[in-house]
């Protein structure tokens, strides 16, 4: 598809995290470059895969500026600047929303952060509701929404106040196969809203994450010969799915090359 990688839009250098003497993360270095495809508005999707307990959530908090690493820095944007809470939209696993606000209220409180003008904020909110096909739910409270609707509102809320980065924590957790496909399409659509959009997925669902990602990182830890953990979480393997010609398309799952990749990742998982 002639995709070209241009300038760096996210860079994490030497990230380590030690909590109470436990090495949670160790020497993580990642770099995400803007992907440009001629004549197409396209963002990108980055997947972080790893088994439970490997430190994915902590790394997620560091990337979003919610947690200070013991060492290292996270820079993002174009031009790059140190990350601060609010620069990255974060949708946690349980889709938190303000239960005391209606859908409209939830979106408006977020929109006002980027658009202090009330009228403009309301216009952006209405656009977002329309885009997510949830205009008829505007007056409802979160408790009146289904899990899928809550997820969409949580994503819409974050998109309204962050600029181009969105972190999704386990977006496929607990979903059936139809819902997974719906969420995958939603994530791809969000990534392609804007050329600079970058959606980062933290997950342990190999198939769902790999099939829509442009880049895939596998997080894991070092082990000794007896299988004991000897290091904090680190990036153990990187897959550039653009170079591998395995970017998202409807029938990606039927590609033998993609199936080989899944097999390889599944084989690596127990050792991570």
């Amino acid at each position: 598809m002639n995709a070209q990688k241009t300038n760096t839009i996210l860079k994490a250098e030497n990230i380590s995290l030690n909590i109470g003497g436990n090495q949670i993360l160790q020497d993580i270095n990642i770099e995400i470059k803007d992907i440009v495809r001629p004549n197409v508005t396209t963002g990108q999707i980055v997947g972080f895969l790893g088994p439970s307990g490997v430190g994915k959530t902590k790394f997620f908090e560091i990337l979003s500026g919610l947690l200070e690493p013991t060492t290292g820095t996270v820079m993002l944007g174009d031009p790059l600047e140190p990350v601060q809470a609010g620069m990255v939209g974060v949708v946690q696993q349980n889709y938190p929303l303000f239960s005391h606000r209606t859908v409209e209220g939830n979106l408006l409180v977020a929109a006002k952060k980027l658009y202090p003008n009330e009228k403009e904020a309301k216009e952006k909110m209405a656009l977002m509701l329309d885009r997510f096909k949830l205009s008829d739910k505007a007056k409802l409270y979160p408790a009146q929404l289904s899990g899928g609707q809550k997820q969409r509102i949580a994503i819409a809320q974050q998109l309204l106040c962050s600029k181009h980065f969105l972190l999704l924590d386990e977006p496929f957790s607990g979903l059936d196969i139809n819902m997974i496909q719906e969420v995958q399409e939603l994530i791809t659509e969000i990534a392609n809203f804007n050329e600079l959009n970058t959606v980062i997925i933290v997950s342990h669902d190999i198939v769902s994450t790999a099939s829509i990602s442009d880049t895939l990182w596998l997080m894991g830890r070092d082990h000794d010969s007896k299988g004991n953990v000897t290091s904090g979480g680190k990036i153990k393997h990187t897959y550039d799915l653009i170079d591998m010609d395995l970017c998202y398309e409807k029938d990606i799952l039927s590609k033998p090359k993609f199936q080989d990749l899944l097999k390889e990742i599944r084989g690596l998982f127990p050792k991570l």
Partner: peptide
Amino acid sequence: KNELNHARTLRMPEWQVVWEVIILGKMD
């Protein structure tokens, strides 16, 4: 922590986090 972080990711300063999550959020 997730409830507080949710408010923080919406660019809220700490006092607004308190207002939104603790004061308004715990009104019931």
